[in-house]
């Protein structure tokens, strides 16, 4: 079953056909060519596929594609400015050495962005809670936490 849906993707209106048995992850990667969103575990347990839907971080690998009809979706591709200037959270990840292999990074950054959009000055505990659903097998997490703290401190 295919259905035409419309939603906002990184600020732009998109029209696309989605299937009943399709996940948001599959729609983004296969139909819309956004390969920044990663599939790790495929069961909502690693956070590599995190995107923001209507302000809330969620795991797109177990989220039905058809549920985004009328919603606003943000992926990692939507963060940098058109001229390539990085988003403050991306910039903070670079400066703090929070990226190693990079596979978990889009999900980490989107979880952090969803937190900072709701709560611009979170405590360390709130940062850790917001990122608890994003696994990283390289960095040991400390640099990632530091990066989010730094991004928060740079905010007005």
């Amino acid at each position: 079953m295919k259905r035409a849906i419309e939603f906002r993707l990184n600020g732009q209106a998109v029209h696309v056909e989605a299937r009943g048995g399709q996940t948001l992850l599959e729609l983004l990667r296969q139909e819309l060519g956004l390969n920044g969103v990663k599939e790790g575990c495929g069961a909502g347990e690693c956070g590599a596929c995190t995107v923001i839907v209507d302000g809330q971080a969620l795991t797109s690998c177990i989220f039905p594609a058809l549920e985004v009809e009328g919603a606003s979706v943000t992926t990692i591709e939507g963060l940098a400015a058109p001229d390539g200037t990085l988003h403050p959270v991306q910039e903070a990840f670079v400066r703090n050495g929070a990226v190693q292999c990079g596979f978990c990074t889009p999900g980490q950054i989107l979880s952090a962005k969803a937190l900072l959009d709701l709560n611009p000055h979170p405590s360390e505990e709130q940062i850790r809670t917001a990122l608890e659903g994003n696994l990283c097998r390289c960095t040991g997490y400390q640099q990632i936490i530091e990066a989010v703290k730094a991004a928060a401190e740079d905010q007005p």
Partner: peptide
């Protein structure tokens, strides 16, 4: 329960 992403859904 779960994680922030899970609890949101």
């Amino acid at each position: 329960m779960g994680s922030t992403q899970m609890r949101n859904v």
